[in-house]
Design a protein around this nucleic acid. Structure first.
Lengths: 331, 331
DNA sequence: CTGAAAGCGCTAACAA
DNA sequence: TTGTTAGCGCTTTCAG
């Protein structure tokens, strides 16, 4: 049982230097001759030395790991961001803890405590609640918020939701839509509010208005949305000629409800979704949608967190990531 | 700057006992009076003491964290397992590191090294390569393999792929299919091999055979599969009346290719997919598919790993998780 | 440019 | 039942 891993002491002995020198070389702190450096580096390689993170953590309070809190990892949109972050931080030798809330906000505090206990060097919240956990502010860990902007957030990264809403509205107007349904989660949030404003601005430019009756807050699940739209059609008929849904799944639910009620898309009703998940490409007809740049969101958040952790100056505290429209079959 | 966290020494002082006693109470090791226990527990609560995992790790070589290696976190099927595991391990106070391979097998070794450096107590591989990393065997970390069975694997958890293949074959035969396409990833793996065997057994029972020309190895992306099937239809016509695809996305690609070429599903061709991802429910017509029980897979893997980490006896080294068929619109 | 040594917070002998 | 104490492997003064 060779359970004894090689330590910095072993390296020091083998290289004929002190542990301090080995440590200096490992951490590139300078203050050693080139010769010593070569010697140490060589020995490290030869004996397969790997620094013990627990020991380092004990001394430095750093863990070389970060935590990502995400409401629903099975949502492709979030999963893509997580992937980008995972890859990004691998380059910087940070490991990432995953904290899936499973859409249960109560888990958030537990996960935060868990991360704090693990001495994470930083934290990224994707689309979580708008207020900042008190336990977190007290702990004072570098934090980046993606797609939500709590008050007092250090750094946030968001898609340009306003522009997304604007683009969608503009497109639908250009297609000649006069009465557009705005379908969103029944619980409003800041991202959706921005999209709504952009959307309304576009309508305004085209001399349209969007009365209250066109804004629909619903349960966001596919089935709920589908039933909701189906009911609407039964009760009020198809009194609209366009739909802007806050994500592709909801848009697809609307599409299917329409089709099953005998309405044609895009002939009678045009639809724009949001996110550009693969679903939107695969469905029939393929969905016109506002694409969020998950890759850039991840990179920006990663870079910002690195700076925060290094105590570097952050010029940009609120990153706005451009969106673009994917025009497909539903418009 | 209250950067000084309260340590076990502070607790010991405040409670008027030694650090050893505090440690004993924390770890429930017994050997202390009920009175001391109460006192210590109370002080811990009062002063908000949280054990320092780095210190514990340095002493015990345990990190209270595990790693999950997954080929593609944006795949809903894998994401669901990850979620279950995340939730499962939260209960046991283990944090989970995510290692997304992004379908790039070369990342595997790097992630494994990363996890080993982080002193993870255990590792779970979801559907990764069939051979075991040498660096991993040397490190001797408790490991569970999901949906792949490398030689010498300590513990594996797999869906009943044979039965899945059998059920699919049976269903198609019962629908009267005589010539069934078997569409799979061009690279074979053990899970698919099992499904194939089950599938062939069903055909045999119905007096059918599946010649080589019905087995199709393809690039697994949606577009590739779609094009493949479309080409097949052009070149050979619709010489088959059933399709069994190795996942829902591939099944959907086939469905769309058929429809776009003017063939009707399920009238002319019946299709069965695999996995039961949400896509299969949402598409038109909804896809008949073999449902893998992601929740049970996660739980079984989690429980097995806990046992492994505790050095408990494992009765069952190879867990087979039942599958079931979701009959929907494509059959 | 290099080394000696203290100590981070905890566990686990060993002693009492 | 409880306390004392020696490290776990590393970083970081302080001396030289």
């Amino acid at each position: 049982m060779e359970n004894k891993r090689v330590s910095i002491i072993d390296v020091a002995k083998a290289a004929g230097v002190s542990t301090a020198t080995v440590s200096r070389v490992i951490n590139q702190m300078g203050g050693y001759s080139e010769k010593t450096e070569r010697k140490v580096l060589e020995t490290i390689k030869n004996c397969g030395f790997r620094p013990n993170v627990s020991a380092i953590g004990l001394r430095t309070r750093k863990s070389r790991s970060i935590g990502i809190v995400v409401p629903d990892i099975t949502n492709e949109f979030f999963a893509k961001i997580v992937r980008t972050l995972n890859q990004f931080f691998l380059k910087y030798n940070y490991s990432v803890f995953i904290c899936d809330l499973n859409e249960d906000a109560d888990l958030e505090e537990r996960h935060i405590q868990e991360m704090l206990d693990k001495n994470v060097d930083g934290l990224i919240f994707i689309s979580c609640r708008e207020s900042i956990s008190t336990i977190l502010t007290r702990a004072n860990v570098p934090t980046v918020y993606i797609d939500r902007s709590p008050k007092d957030a250090e750094v946030t990264v968001c898609s340009d939701h306003f522009d997304g809403g604007y683009l969608a509205g503009k497109k639908l107007c250009e297609c000649g839509c006069k009465k557009i349904l705005f379908i969103r989660h029944y619980r409003m949030n800041s991202a959706v509010e921005l999209r709504r404003q952009g959307f309304l601005k576009a309508l305004e430019e085209y001399g349209q208005t969007c009365e209250g009756e066109y804004e629909k807050g619903v349960l966001p699940e596919y089935q709920s949305v589908k039933e909701f739209v189906a009911n609407l059609l039964v009760e009020k008929g198809c009194y609209f000629d366009g739909i802007f849904a806050m994500n592709d799944r909801m848009a697809l639910a609307a599409l299917h409800a329409l089709r099953e009620s005998g309405y044609e898309v895009p002939k009678q009703v045009r639809i724009v979704g949001f996110d550009n998940v693969s679903l939107s490409e695969i469905c029939h007809p393929p969905m016109t949608t506002i694409a969020q740049d998950t890759h850039q969101i991840g990179i920006s958040a990663g870079e910002a967190l690195i700076k925060l952790m290094r105590n570097e100056d952050i010029q940009e505290k609120n990153h706005i990531i451009p969106v673009h429209m994917k025009v497909r079959g539903t418009t």
